[in-house]
Design a protein around this nucleic acid. Structure first.
Length: 600
RNA sequence: GCCGGCGUAGCUCAGUGGCAGAGCAGCUGUUUCGUAAACAGCAGGCCGAGGGUUCGAGUCCCCCCGCCGGCUCCA
């Protein structure tokens, strides 16, 4: 239902059922619904311990410690009880009470007591409706009747306070919108997302599959490999333009290298390490240490910088089993990775150049809606000095502003080696994803002893940047497949045209059409099945092939093809030469839509 | 890793203790067709792996693996 027929990135009405920060009123409704849910749970399980229940995007949740796992039937019954409370429409009353009173009120509620102890000041918020009491800072509707349209959605495990050393609680998620129409729209959008799920389309379009023989590592099928390589080739073209040099460095390094880089101490949980002490090896989870090691193979003048090293090697990270998820979270992946070594004077220009290149890439791919986040020093695992972090963070912030853009702050979310900018893109379904990143490295140049000789004749340490624009190719493909619903622009489509002979006697001409296309490096196939034309067209449509070229008696006679555009219908017969030229042109300009048609 | 759910043909799914099924896809034959599914026939299974209960297990129990949704983490 979410059409990608509109020009990419445009035509949004800004009124999405998801993705937007909930308004104040909506937030109150969601928060109150959480209280009403907790009341229902306590009715059903008087011995339940309740923890916290905030409003969230699309709804609300509440965490409970319960005597048994919840079932779908429980949710139905809880929802029924909630609706009873809505119907009763009782007031929700809030006030401040002394901590002592609160401790008495929640004397058998350990999670609430823990929260009371941590709240500053002498009083805490207390909210009550009917017989239900909660510890709460407020933000509620006046009465329980004003909860809009809601539905209990699912149960999931969640650690108390998000810390895995704590008890695992049961979290009940609910959906809530102001009107039933908005709730329905959200549910419909979710169904559309399921239809577009990259794992499903990966199978349907024969792009890739994930296999238990290597969890988290994709098998790219021939068509998926074409897509993957088309993206890499595209980035390579830009590398020529933007002055990057591609390298290929080893997959496997001695533990010494990981100790030098800091990965051994800060990232080893996520690494595949093996071998005896003294001859221990690690498969690379990132390219940076290899690039730093390469840097040391010669001496650099300031005139040699910036040095921009790119690499598409496959990387491996030993992700915890529970977090793998299709291509968005894989153990084996590749990035459009590069490291830039420059002088402090060149820093800002390099950041701006990365911005320009990113804008170009996202725009070529039809992804126009993106934001920047600045992720700062983590609280625990980091290397270097805090003042260096602050300085680097300020430089990044200044560079963003210098490029005329805004950013959102993400405190404590930096990499262990430095602060980073993250590029977040919104897809056709309104969901936000992190793709690219630009990171300052505060540790590695010193750890590897990297230097260059400056104009003053002395050795200085270069500034090191990490950057990726697509991020991981795997994650990018997942997002892009879902964004386009598999209807890729011609330049990326694994099969760019299917030639459809109407009857067997047209096979020879069909093959000639295919050869003509192939001669211009256009990826075309002939549908030589015994199916009727209608079935061949249906098959090509389902495979999201951009062009269907129908050939029968008339076309063979006139050296023409009848063009059908994916999403655009029958365009009538055109001379073969002209069609070949127009398709090649559409590919070379990386057009997002073809032959004047709306995008698929 | 933790909590919950799920694993039956290539795909989507029926099958709640008694002979493993359907649709689509595949193969063969007939049809040679003008813009989203021609017709007929055939074949297709370690019911995720291992162990147990039972006269008998796809079905019940245990354990492992994988997947899905969360938590946590992250490209």
């Amino acid at each position: 239902m979410v059409s990608d027929g509109a020009p990419a990135g445009g035509g949004e009405d800004g009124d999405r059922p998801d993705g937007q920060a909930p308004g104040e009123r909506l937030s109150r409704m969601r928060h109150s619904a959480a209280h009403v849910l907790a009341e229902a749970v306590l009715e059903l399980f008087p011995e339940a311990k309740y923890a916290i229940g905030p409003p969230i995007e699309n709804g609300f949740y509440y965490d409970f410690d319960l005597p048994r796992p919840l079932t779908p039937d429980d949710l139905t019954q809880l929802e029924r009880r909630m609706r009873r409370t809505v119907k009763a429409n009782v007031p929700i009353e809030g006030r401040q009470i002394p901590k002592e009173e609160a401790r008495a009120l929640f004397s058998d509620q350990p999670y609430k007591l823990e929260l009371i102890d941590e709240i500053e000041g002498e009083t805490v918020g207390h909210f009550r409706h009917a017989e239900f009491d909660d510890l709460c800072r407020g933000g509620h509707t006046e009465r329980t009747g004003d909860l809009g349209a809601f539905r209990l959605d699912r149960v999931a495990g969640a650690y108390w306070r998000g810390d895995e050393r704590n008890a695992m609680l049961q979290r009940i998620y609910g959906l809530l919108f102001e009107t039933p129409a908005e709730l329905d729209a959200y549910l419909e959008a979710r169904e559309e997302a399921e239809r577009r799920d990259h794992r499903r389309l990966g199978r349907e379009l024969d792009l890739f599959h994930l296999d238990p023989v290597s969890p988290g590592a994709p098998f790219y099928h021939p068509r998926g490999t074409v897509l993957y390589n088309a993206l890499v080739d595209y980035m390579r073209e830009l590398y020529v333009e933007y002055g990057y040099q591609e390298v290929i460095t080893p997959q496997l390094f001695a533990a010494d290298l990981w100790k030098t880089s800091g990965h051994y101490d800060n990232f080893s949980e996520d690494m595949f390490l093996f071998g005896e002490e003294g001859s221990e090896l690690g498969i690379k989870p990132m390219n940076c240490p290899g690039h730093c090691h390469y840097y040391r193979t010669r001496l650099y003048s300031y005139r040699d910088l910036p040095l921009r090293l790119a690499e598409f090697s496959r990387l491996h990270r030993n992700e915890r089993s529970g977090v793998l998820s299709g291509l968005t979270r894989a153990r084996s992946f590749a990035q459009d990775d590069a490291h830039i070594y420059c002088t402090p004077e060149q820093f800002e220009a390099e950041v701006v150049s990365v911005f320009e290149m990113s804008e170009r890439v996202y725009s070529d791919l039809g992804l126009e809606d993106w934001q920047i986040r600045l992720a700062t020093m983590p609280e625990e695992k980091f290397i270097g000095e805090p003042e260096d972090w602050r300085r680097a963070e300020a430089l990044l912030a200044a560079a963003v502003r210098g490029a005329g853009r805004e950013f959102e702050l993400a405190p404590g979310e930096g990499a262990f080696y430095g602060p980073k900018l993250e590029f977040h893109l919104r897809d056709a379904l309104g969901r936000s994803w992190q793709l690219g990143t630009l990171q300052v490295d505060l540790g590695m140049p010193a750890r590897f002893g990297l230097t260059y000789v400056a104009a003053d004749g002395a050795e200085h340490e270069p500034v090191m940047l990490h950057r990726a624009i697509l991020g991981s190719l795997e994650r990018f493909l997942a997002i892009y497949i879902e964004h386009t619903a598999g209807a890729f622009p011609l330049w990326l489509a694994p099969v760019q045209a299917v030639v459809i002979p109407i009857a067997d006697r047209h096979a020879a001409y069909a093959d000639e059409v295919r050869s003509q296309l192939a001669a211009r490096r256009l990826r075309a196939e002939v549908d030589g099945s015994g199916n009727r034309m209608n079935a061949k067209i249906r098959e090509a449509q389902l495979q999201k092939v951009p062009y269907m070229l129908v050939v029968g008696d008339r076309e063979a006679e006139a050296r023409a093809v009848s063009v059908r555009v994916r999403g655009g219908g029958d365009r009538g017969a055109l001379p073969l030469d002209e069609v070949v030229a127009r398709l090649a042109e559409e590919r070379d300009t990386r057009a997002l839509a073809g032959l004047g048609a709306a995008a698929p």
